[in-house]
């Protein structure tokens, strides 16, 4: 039997410290995730300095657990992969420096991984990618459509011009009295409500692949404030349902628009907001009829949030191409994919 390639993968870009062991880029041997949600709940959102401090508390515990749960030693490893951006710089620095040290101490190659590439490769644990491929990446920090000609090649086709979708969820969550992170609870409320408020679908008819969610957020907040002023009580579930309907409509219609112009073999849905049931259900319902030749790959629910396994999967592609970093690797908080050549931003 051919020896498997094992990658020890680090992720610390926001409020989860995670270390995973991944075999051949598609088999999870361990995926230890220490989440700080309970800490940042106190503040209604992630406080970068607090996040950085938690990462340094957790990092060696996560390494130890990841190796133990995978039942491997350093001698079994072939490489170390790490998220080096985008993300919170102080948070990224903990993972980057820890990963560099493990690579140095055990003479292993170091693989610098783009966090957003990691999110896309979370779907690689479902089945192998077929190209060309389109990814709809939706998270608290990003909302973008990414075109992939081949493994490891990422080109942005469209993105949000203001808030990320997940950010909008958190902001309206505050108005609804839902604690951070609000996505999951609003998703559940939306399923119990009806779209009655007809919030705007920003840029839905514009001939581009970009998104905007700040107008929706403002419309939502204005509606609630207006009701407060006249002493009316609005149904929170209907508010959530109306908000979510707008988000999903915009995301799905833009995705349809992009697929008309770029026929692809697979559509990947990934990122934290990919865990949203409303979004998953709509794509599962619409895509087969609208684009019968495009297969829908939903990132597994457990791998939608930040985790080391997805970094190991993306890192494995770079491992095969010998795309290694060195001891001077630094965090790059605003790391981006390139825009597709010829696309007007």
């Amino acid at each position: 039997m051919k020896k498997q390639n094992l990658i020890l993968a680090f992720e610390s870009s926001c409020d989860e410290t995670s270390v995973a062991v991944v075999a051949d880029g598609h088999q999870i041997l361990s995926n230890v995730i220490a989440t700080q949600i309970n800490s940042h709940k106190r503040f209604g959102g992630v406080v970068p300095e607090v996040a950085s401090r938690h990462h340094i508390e957790q990092i060696t515990i996560c390494i130890e657990s990841a190796l133990e749960e995978a039942n491997v030693t350093y001698d079994d490893l072939d490489a170390v992969a790490v998220t080096y951006g985008p993300g919170l710089v102080g948070a990224l620095l903990v993972g980057v420096n820890a990963a560099k040290v493990v690579a140095y101490a055990h003479h292993l190659p170091l693989i610098p991984v783009n966090h957003m590439a990691g999110h896309i490769y979370a779907a690689r644990f479902v089945k192998p990618f077929e190209f060309p491929l389109m990814a709809l990446l939706v998270s608290g920090g990003h909302t973008e459509l990414v075109y992939m000609q081949a493994d490891g090649q990422f080109e942005i086709i469209g993105e949000t011009r203001d808030d990320a979708a997940g950010e909008a969820y958190d902001k309206i969550g505050r108005v609804l009295g839902v604690s951070y992170p609000a996505g999951k609870e609003i998703d559940q409320m939306a399923h119990a409500g009806i779209d009655t408020f007809n919030f705007p679908r920003a840029m839905i008819d514009e001939d581009n692949f970009d998104f905007s969610f700040s107008g929706l957020k403002s419309a939502f907040i204005n509606t609630v404030h207006h009701a407060d002023q006249i002493g009316a009580t609005l149904d929170k579930n209907d508010l959530a349902a109306s908000f979510q309907a707008s988000v999903v409509d915009v995301l799905v219609s833009k995705t349809h628009r992009v697929l008309e112009q770029y026929p692809v073999k697979q559509l990947v849905l990934a990122g934290g907001v990919a865990a949203n049931q409303g979004l998953r259900e709509r794509l599962q319902k619409d895509l087969p009829t609208a684009f019968p030749n495009t297969e829908l790959l939903l990132a597994p629910l457990k791998l939608c949030g930040d985790n080391g396994a997805m970094i190991g999967a993306a890192g494995y592609v770079q491992y095969q191409h010998h795309q290694f970093g060195d001891a001077s690797l630094n965090a790059d908080p605003s790391l981006e994919f390139d825009w597709m050549p010829g696309m007007v931003k």
Partner: peptide, 15 residues
């Protein structure tokens, strides 16, 4: 501090 301590702590731990 975090850069130095992460480096030192991880090195001590991993070895």
């Amino acid at each position: 501090l975090r850069i130095g301590v992460t480096t030192a702590k991880t090195l001590a731990f991993t070895l």
